[in-house]
Design a protein around this nucleic acid. Structure first.
Lengths: 222, 222
DNA sequence: CAGTCACGTGACCGATAAGTCACATTATAG
DNA sequence: CTATAATGTGACTTATCGGTCACGTGACTG
């Protein structure tokens, strides 16, 4: 954790440092991200930085936890629907809100993702704090979906969790591509008018595929 | 491309350098991967290396193309079945062979993946050579599946391609996790006895989900 | 006013990186 | 054997990194 000195800083300065550091660790992996670059951009002395943070790892873990907490706050602020609406309807909500976060906070999203899937030092340290929470959350959801009769009981819950998590994460790449935006455009401030209707349609289609599959052998088409 | 000097090298030496470089670029991203480390392990002088390769980028692009070519060779050597067996059966074959490659050549697989999805320099340069080939291949497959009547014509082909590609790639993480192996065990030589039956079952389940979905509302359960 | 203490500063350190170059070694050829 | 070309070598340069430290500054205290 950062020193108290860091939190004593004027809000503007503290936020500037935080934002620049987030941008740095979102753009580069742990080893390549440069403290020197951050302090240069933030126009503070290197020595000052090391009065705020113990070392590079201290900053990194702080940012990962910050990003994770922001995502949790984001999801909870958009109040979840009741489970009774059914598994796939609930999942659709989760997809939309999760993707909404990824689109509106691409840097935070990138940091979380790199921390969980990347070849990062301290990955295990971070993994227990982060990934298991998300995986477990979806896993519980799947279990509930099975017991509610929404999910085919022949489906292995681990596999279902994998499919859902993987696709939810993949949307981070698919949606911008589909909308003809390059991901870097999203990193900068001022999102360039996202066609939310097109995004909603992606969710509809994806949920349909998850529920009914892509095969044409089913009863009737969507 | 490397200089002719590199290809004039005795096979053993050239292969040693190649393998060590592959291991380096599979373990670390472009910036962190160290030429100094490679030449030290290969026991050649730094100057020699720079007689083989123009610079770091030259080596990197060579490795990416090598890895990609090896994967193509691998897939073509395992002769593809005829399309008439149906889209999902064909897809199952593709999943198995692709995962087989990833499991037996984790370093090559890692390099390809990093080159395509990572925040790498020269990504665009490489992307056109690599990713589009794979995406297009699956896209064509989907088109064929639709025209054959195997795929619900209401499904958007782009979305289907995304789902398939994303899940196929995700298997790289899911399979070892499911088998209780850590991915680094696979990097070293001598794969520690993979339970192929369990792997086959994963493919079966995944293909089932892709074809019929996870919902229980379908006709009968698998 | 002097003293103290939190904070700011940037030159500096050791390590390591990519890339160079003058020179040594080896292979080939006349 | 000698001359020429190809290849091998590692100390060196320039740059950047994470991190340190002796010192400067400015606000509060008695």
């Amino acid at each position: 954790m950062p020193n108290q000195t860091f939190f004593n800083l004027p809000d503007k300065k503290r936020q500037l440092i935080t934002e620049l550091a987030i941008a740095e660790f979102a753009s580069y992996d742990y080893d390549t991200a440069s403290i020197s670059n951050v302090v240069k951009q933030a126009k503070i002395a290197k020595g000052s930085f090391y009065q705020y943070f113990e070392d590079k790892k201290d900053l990194y873990l702080y940012l990962v936890n910050l990003a994770h907490q922001q995502k949790i706050d984001f999801l909870q602020q958009a109040r979840p629907p009741k489970p009774e609406i059914g598994f796939f309807a609930y999942l659709r909500w989760l997809f939309r809100e999760s993707a909404q976060f990824d689109l509106s906070h691409p840097a935070l999203s990138q940091i979380i993702n790199r921390a969980v899937y990347g070849n990062v030092p301290f990955r295990d340290e971070v993994l227990k704090q982060i990934q298991s929470a998300s995986l477990l959350y979806v896993y519980r959801l799947v279990e509930q979906g099975v017991s509610q009769g929404d999910i085919d009981s022949g489906i292995d819950p681990d596999l279902a969790t994998f499919v859902i998590n993987t696709l939810a994460d993949g949307l981070r790449y698919f949606i911008p591509q589909r909308l003809g935006l390059n991901p870097e455009q999203l990193t900068s401030e001022g999102a360039p008018e996202i066609d939310m209707q097109a995004v909603e349609q992606i969710f509809d289609e994806l949920i349909y595929v998850l529920e009914h599959g892509m095969g044409s052998s089913s009863i009737t088409k969507g």
